[in-house]
């Protein structure tokens, strides 16, 4: 019993989403997890207290996302009477800065007190700092300088509060382009517990299929969990977040066309064949899809499609192995353990 409870807790990764009021926390959450399109977020009201959401990610990762309302009164209460409740066993803190904020000093102050509390209760957690609403800065040069200056400020604050540099990551984001996906892909990659195992298996699959690239993405969020590449380096290093964004907008367009909820839409298969490459996406596990990019060859392409179907079993197996090894959840396994005890 106790082991299963512990398993559950380990499986759930607590993610805090914080930042001052109006920074765009709920907007980005709605876009990534609730199938909102960027212009719909205008309708969102202020978040009251904490909104919890659980997102199942892969077979064995449950994101326990705490969207913490950013109004000063709430923040005050997180830092005082709810302090231990909010900041215990946090895996990741995502702190959102509004880059166009009129009171940057107050933002930084709020950030400092937040990570002080975090350091107190979860010193090993990872901090992702997002400078949001970058689209409001018109020129590219300005974007880089503003980002660099703000990142330096925040980095100093983090070090002053006892976080080592590797624990903190900075990204510039905007809901109007794919930068949001880039930031969240980093978060997810950090959280997926068996990324290395999955990567090894994908690598094996890629070798078998002779594919140029494989990537695995979560179906509802379209966030790319992991990828393997073979052969020459692709000149588009930002291709994954672009793909996330492409797949997401395709999903919206299909939802609009068929009149079903965006969360319901999922394609069985998508194929794109050209002279230069062949590409397909299909289901891999319960809530992930796999995309395969391979050289142009009709025969190899069809074989690859069958191989991926066959590989599904292996990946389902992977989820269970992980559960057996780390976190016991399924009833039959527990029974087995009980018997062996």
């Amino acid at each position: 019993m106790s082991s299963s409870e512990r398993g559950k807790r380990q499986k759930q990764r607590k993610v805090l989403l914080m930042g001052r009021s109006g920074a765009g926390k709920s907007s980005m959450r709605s876009i990534i997890f609730s199938n909102y399109v960027a212009k719909d977020v205008r309708r969102l009201g202020a978040t009251v207290d904490v909104e919890h959401s659980n997102i199942k990610f892969m077979g064995n990762l449950m994101l326990n996302l705490w969207d913490c309302g950013g109004q000063d009164a709430f923040v005050e209460s997180y830092l005082t009477n709810q302090r231990s409740h909010v900041f215990t066993s946090v895996a990741v803190l995502i702190f959102v800065f509004d880059i166009s904020s009129s009171e940057p000093a107050a933002d930084l102050l709020s950030f400092a007190s937040t990570i002080r509390a975090l350091h107190e209760f979860s010193p090993n957690s990872k901090v992702f700092v997002l400078f949001h609403k970058m689209d409001l800065i018109p020129s590219v040069e300005q974007k880089t300088t503003v980002f660099r200056d703000r990142a330096a400020e925040v980095r100093n604050t983090c070090e002053a509060e006892g976080f080592v540099p590797g624990q903190v990551d900075f990204s510039a984001t905007s809901i109007w382009d794919q930068s949001l996906y880039r930031a969240w892909t980093q978060v997810i990659y950090f959280l997926v517990p068996n990324a290395a195992t999955i990567e090894a298996m994908l690598q094996k699959l890629a070798d078998i299929l002779d594919a140029k690239e494989l990537f695995l993405y979560e179906r509802t969020t379209c966030l790319i969990v992991t990828h393997v590449s073979r052969g020459p380096e692709n000149p588009y290093p930002d291709r994954f977040e672009r793909l996330s964004s492409i797949l997401k907008s395709h999903k919206h367009s299909m939802a609009k066309h068929t009149g079903v909820m965006a969360s319901e839409v999922s394609f069985a298969e998508m194929q794109i064949k050209t002279g230069a490459f062949m590409f397909f996406i299909t289901r891999l596990t319960e809530n992930t899809n796999i995309a395969v990019v391979m050289p142009s060859n009709e025969g190899a392409f069809n074989v690859a499609r069958i191989n991926v179907q066959l590989a599904r079993k292996e990946f389902a197996h992977l989820d269970i192995v992980e559960k057996k090894g780390k976190e016991v959840q399924r009833v039959p396994k527990e029974d087995l353990e009980a018997l062996s005890d």
């Binding site: 299909m254 999922s266 394609f267 298969e269 194929q271 794109i272 050209t274």
Partner: peptide, 9 residues
């Protein structure tokens, strides 16, 4: 090139 998308639901 050609492309096809099939849907689940």
């Amino acid at each position: 090139g050609e492309s096809i998308v099939t849907y689940d639901k």
